[in-house]
């Protein structure tokens, strides 16, 4: 089998170029393995070869985030590697952030697998754990051999498209991703066994610890609706006929903003629902059942509300992950604020 080509990213300290006083050096490259790359090369064995090492000072990286990342990615791209390692950074915070940023950029921009290593207290772990495989390390370089062995093993698996095992097997920080596997027993039997343990007060392990959604503090009430600007936001999948933004009928990854200025009521011919989670018969008969434009216009005319926003915002709720929904709202709330909207009516289906 062809030897895999590896590029390694480290900081100036691990490259043997001074300490803090040299942390301002800009990205530069060296042939072959340098510093911890020697141990890493040994762990990789015959299957892979470190062809180049990129070195950058942590201060330089921190002070020139965008350009440093761009320059480092450009050097790595030039070598067309099959696999990239960054660090390990142990508990060095700025180094950890740099290792995470470089590894993430390599995966996203170059589509090349990258593996790094950090101690659990390194701020880079929380910043990048969902994006990256970060091997668990000790505080300091004393545990280098063990760390690079795990990094090499995981990196080779990824570069060779082999199945990556769970965190406790491979030694990486839990990424917070729910991944399927085939259990030995069916779920019903596991449930029966679990209830027996729980009832008897014996130890058991839940298969899904409850998430903490965080609490959204309610806004103070709108004191005078007659002066308020109100917008309609729906997860009922109402879109202009033809679905110009191609919003999915389930598991939506996007939302749309649609103009309703000049309309008194939702015209059934011009709008539709693409939502796959409910029987749309009654929504299609009268779109106002999901986007209640008709009654909102009445309220506007009667002066009960000040003004209705000129658009409504829409997505599909069914199957859409909480994470996507949260991201949509963070995004469009800025627009609502910019447009002076004081209150939103959320309709769901």
């Amino acid at each position: 089998m062809k030897k895999l080509k590896v590029v390694h990213y480290i900081n100036n300290f691990f490259a043997g170029i001074g300490g803090e006083e040299k942390a301002g050096i800009s990205p530069e490259e060296r042939d072959g393995a340098v510093g911890p790359g020697m141990a890493l090369a040994q762990a990789l064995g015959e299957e892979a070869e470190i062809i180049a090492t990129v070195v950058c000072g942590d201060s330089y990286f921190g002070e020139n985030l965008a350009s440093a990342e761009k320059d480092i990615v450009a050097i790595i791209r030039k070598h067309q590697p099959d696999l990239v390692f960054t660090g390990p950074a142990f508990n060095a915070g700025r180094y950890g952030v740099a290792c995470g940023a470089v590894a993430k950029a390599v995966e996203e921009q170059l589509g090349i697998p990258a593996v790094t290593g950090m101690h659990e207290e390194n701020p880079g772990v929380d910043m990048y754990r969902k994006d990256l495989y970060i091997i668990k390390t000790g505080h300091s370089a004393a545990g280098m051999k063990k760390t690079v062995t795990s990094m090499a093993s995981l990196g080779l698996k990824r570069a060779q498209n082999q199945l990556v095992g769970p965190p406790e097997e491979e030694g990486y920080h839990v990424r917070g991703m729910r991944i399927n596997y085939w259990a030995e027993k069916r779920a019903s039997l596991r449930a029966v066994e679990m209830i027996l343990k729980k009832v008897k007060g014996e130890a058991y392990q839940t298969e899904y610890p409850m998430p903490d959604f965080g609490r959204v503090e309610p806004m103070p009430p709108v004191l005078d609706f007659s002066k308020a600007k109100v917008a309609i936001v729906t997860s009922g999948g109402i879109v202009p006929t033809g679905n110009p933004d191609r919003i999915e009928s389930s598991s939506a990854t996007k939302y749309g903003i649609y103009d309703i200025s000049g309309l008194d009521s939702m015209p059934a011919d011009d709008y539709t629902s693409i939502h796959g989670g409910y029987d749309r018969t009654y929504a299609l008969e009268d779109i106002n059942r999901v986007v209640p434009l008709d009654v909102m216009r009445d309220l506007e005319r009667e002066g009960i509300i000040g003004k209705l926003a000129d658009y409504f915002i829409s997505t599909t709720g069914t199957g859409t992950s909480v994470g996507s929904a949260r991201a949509f709202a963070v995004d469009f709330s800025n627009k609502l604020l910019e447009d002076g909207v004081n209150a939103v009516i959320l309709t769901s289906t």
Partner: peptide, 20 residues
């Protein structure tokens, strides 16, 4: 979600400490 990174459920209570 497709990447498995979001919450798996849309509601949660602290009493739900045994889930299959």
């Amino acid at each position: 979600g497709k990447d498995g990174k979001s919450e798996s459920l849309t509601d949660a209570v602290k009493e739900a400490d045994a889930v299959v």
